[in-house]
Simulated scan of single mutants.
Amino acid sequence: MAENTTPTDTGRTEGNWAVEYDVEAIRIRDPVADALAVLESGDPFVVTYRDVVKAAGHSCPTASGAYRIVQLGLDALYPDEFPVRSEVEVLAAGPRDDATYGVMGRLISYVTGAAQEDGFGGLAGGHGDRQNMLTFDAFDADGAVPTFRFRRTDTDETVEVTYHVGDVPDGGPALGNLQQIIEGTASEDERELFADVWHGRVQRVLSDDSLFTVTTIEHSA
């Protein structure tokens, strides 16, 4: 991991993002996109952390944690091939109405397509069906540590990813500037300091594998 975890400032001009994060994109195939010729056959969708930020509406350790959880889980399940939407079941250890699990679940669903009963039911014959592929309160884990499992429905292989959110740096007193920023009373220096610390924490989550544990779940015969 690089020593410098501060994201790159892109000039903060209109039309540009204020910060550029350093993290690999997620590539995932979609059988519905294949069938409907949205993509060239066999090509994956490329989902970036920027895409997840757009879905969440903000960037924070929860959003970046969700991105890394799903990225690490898919990498472990599909080391030599693209993961496939509708073949990845997602199991969350916590409830949907939990502030952390609810947000993370939506973002992980955005990447994998896995959804509850209101998800896409697939094309004719259920091709690409994603309904009932996302389950909350699915297994027991330490409630203070966000934990998700990913299961390949074609092989039954399952991995568990735990996010040690308590090990993310707290950011220090600079984060106390947020209230003044919301109220519009913060100075430019206070805003800049807050942004540097806030996005530095996010980049740490995106680049520090020690914040996550990936475990293979063995199924009994």
Rank of each mutant, 00 (worst) to 15 (best):
86 S>E: 10
88 V>A: 00
89 E>A: 03
90 V>Q: 07
90 V>I: 10
90 V>F: 06
90 V>Y: 09
91 L>V: 02
92 A>P: 05
93 A>H: 09
93 A>K: 13
93 A>L: 12
94 G>T: 02
94 G>D: 09
95 P>H: 11
96 R>P: 03
97 D>S: 13
97 D>Y: 13
97 D>P: 10
98 D>A: 13
98 D>F: 05
99 A>W: 07
99 A>Y: 02
101 Y>P: 05
102 G>C: 08
102 G>W: 02
105 G>W: 00
106 R>V: 13
108 I>W: 02
109 S>M: 00
109 S>A: 02
109 S>Q: 05
110 Y>Q: 11
110 Y>N: 13
111 V>S: 04
112 T>W: 05
112 T>Q: 01
114 A>G: 04
115 A>C: 09
115 A>K: 04
115 A>R: 00
116 Q>H: 02
116 Q>F: 02
117 E>Q: 10
120 F>I: 03
120 F>V: 08
121 G>F: 08
122 G>I: 08
123 L>F: 06
123 L>Q: 10
124 A>T: 15
124 A>F: 11
125 G>Y: 04
125 G>S: 04
125 G>A: 02
126 G>H: 09
126 G>V: 06
127 H>K: 14
128 G>W: 12
129 D>G: 03
130 R>D: 08
132 N>K: 07
133 M>V: 01
133 M>H: 06
135 T>H: 12
135 T>P: 02
135 T>R: 13
135 T>V: 14
136 F>Y: 15
136 F>H: 03
137 D>H: 08
137 D>W: 08
138 A>V: 02
140 D>W: 06
142 D>V: 14
143 G>H: 09
144 A>C: 11
144 A>M: 13
144 A>K: 13
144 A>Q: 14
144 A>D: 14
144 A>T: 15
146 P>S: 05
147 T>K: 01
147 T>I: 10
148 F>V: 00
149 R>C: 11
150 F>V: 01
150 F>K: 03
151 R>M: 07
151 R>Q: 04
153 T>R: 14
154 D>K: 13
157 E>W: 00
157 E>G: 03
159 V>E: 01
159 V>N: 06
160 E>F: 02
161 V>S: 04
163 Y>H: 04
